[in-house]
Design a protein around this nucleic acid. Structure first.
Length: 449
RNA sequence: CGGGAUGUAGCGCAGCCUGGUAGCGCAUCUGUUUUGGGAACAGAGGGUCGCAGGUUCGAAUCCUGCCAUCCCGACCA
């Protein structure tokens, strides 16, 4: 047994013991599908404009997405840390951003009359940590990230957690000795993002973004294609279908993977170049709507210069480091994935982020045979790591079926007297709607195989 | 921040114009009959009508102010 592992058997996740406040009717405040479904499926509860509590079901999905993002950052060589939500205004005054940021920044005064703020991002803080910790070029390049709550006092929060004021973000920061090296760090994150979104079960494409005052070509947004997207996207169709790099060596030259994508036209409407788009073969042109779920950019010495973040170079001279930052909206992804994957009956979770791997519906709780089969299924699926949810409620069949559809688990296994008589249970695939009657063993094999 | 709208039970709504002390559906609780795709019947509980003033014998309703939330725009993970 692993050290620290629980010695007791894990309790069944029974619906009757879970906290899942579902809504039959759509709250009138919600206007887009993901927001409506998140409320109806009991995933979140609004507390203020743009501020949400994550109820158990939503919290599970949030954590699953967070974990995939984390694993892909780790794989790309980024190192995890954690910075606070509350920051001192001093650093922001150093970079000039305290005044530049405007009313989007939530400013707080503590009991000592110190000006504080709830961080909307962490460039200033990480640069401060870096400059006081690293003095030599030999420690470069460095790539650090954290996954932390942010607050931006949006003029108009809307669409649920899609544009909340408080949101969970993965933000990574790179430090390099020069621009050429910084480009390699940028490519690392570029490829890591491709893999991350692929694992989340969604198609996110990198599109050219406004690089800001630095210029150059090193700024990309990653957008999920969905009808409800906030921005228009023009892209070469091949970009959407291109397979993720997968198992790459992040210490190798990644320019091949990146260049073949950057060579294909893709831009949001504000960066759209009509002439360049016209050069794309007509049958490869694609116009769609997109939701921004990630943004990466190289910003050079924007923060290191004013903050004096320098290292000693090989020539012995102080050299200002080159930075980049890389964000993924983790909480936004929950909504974005739903936008990209739902139907009239509810959410259709990609397996990698589903809150439970499967639902087990017992149509006749209290019936000895039904209970036994349902519990056997639970135990075996659980052993196989599928993390099932057991609907042990006394609700009628129809209620159970539609509830399972609403919360969108990839599979629902129905156990009822009728099937048991024939030695079968029914397995339903949420995405296709296909149902098949299988023996218990075959059902388990199907879901775990 | 400009424009628009809405606040009445957990959710969806009616009542407001024409002032008389709050109602419907769903959900919840109890009971009975049901139970393979959102059951039926009977009964029950639940509301300072967003908040504060004002008018009036009397305000959910009329007047004034404030607050909150949503939508459209301009900005953003």
């Amino acid at each position: 047994m692993r050290a620290g592992a629980a010695t007791h058997k894990r309790a069944f996740m029974r619906l009757t013991k879970y906290f899942l406040p579902l809504l039959k009717e759509t709250p009138s405040d919600a206007t887009i599908a993901s927001h409506q479904l998140m409320l109806r499926a009991g995933m979140v509860r609004q507390n203020s404009a743009g501020i949400y509590s994550w109820l158990p079901l939503g919290h599970k999905v949030l954590k699953k997405i967070e974990q995939i993002v984390r694993e892909e950052q780790d794989r790309a060589g980024a190192v995890e840390m954690l910075m606070p939500t509350i920051q001192s205004a001093d650093l922001w005054k150093e970079t000039g951003r305290y005044d530049a940021y405007g009313p989007e920044m939530l400013r707080i005064t503590d009991r000592h009359d110190q000006e504080m703020l709830y961080g909307p991002t962490n460039e200033d803080m990480i640069t401060d940590i870096f400059r006081t910790s690293v003095q030599s070029y030999k420690r470069l390049p460095a790539l650090l990230y954290h996954i932390q709550w942010k607050f931006r006092d949006e003029r108009r929060p809307r669409f649920g957690v899609m544009r909340g004021r408080e949101f969970l973000m993965k933000d990574a920061y790179s430090f390099d000795i020069d621009e050429a090296s910084a480009r390699q760090s940028y490519y690392r994150m570029f490829v890591a993002y491709l893999n991350t979104f692929a694992r989340l079960g969604i198609k996110a494409i990198p599109v050219k973004a406004d690089p800001g005052p630095i210029g150059g070509d090193l700024s990309h947004e990653f957008v999920i294609l969905a009808e409800s997207g906030e921005s228009g996207v023009f892209a070469h169709r091949d970009l959407v279908e291109m397979a993720p790099p997968g198992d790459v060596d992040f210490d190798s030259d990644l320019s091949g993977e990146v260049d073949k994508r950057m060579a294909l036209y893709a831009a949001t409407d504000e960066m759209h170049d009509e002439a360049a788009y016209d050069a794309v073969p007509a049958d490869k042109r694609m116009e769609a709507r997109g939701i921004e779920v990630g943004h990466i950019f190289y910003f050079g010495t924007k923060y290191s210069e004013p903050m004096g973040a320098k290292v000693q170079g090989p020539d012995g001279k102080p050299t200002t480091i080159h930075g980049g930052s890389y964000g993924i909206g983790v909480s936004r992804l929950v909504a974005a994935i739903i936008e990209a994957s739902h139907d009239d009956n509810g959410i259709v979770w990609p397996a990698s982020v589903a809150p439970f791997g499967a639902g087990i519906i017992n149509l006749k709780v209290g019936d000895e045979a039904c209970d036994r089969v349902a519990e056997e299924l639970y135990a075996k699926l659980s052993e196989a790591g599928l993390d099932p949810l057991y609907d042990d409620s006394s609700d009628r069949g129809g209620v159970k079926f539609s509830r399972m559809d609403l919360i969108g688990l990839p599979f629902a296994i129905t156990v009822g007297p009728r099937g048991i008589k024939d030695g079968v249970v029914e397995v339903k695939d949420r995405r296709t709607g296909e149902r098949e009657s299988l023996s218990v063993e075959a059902a388990i094999a199907k879901l775990t195989g």
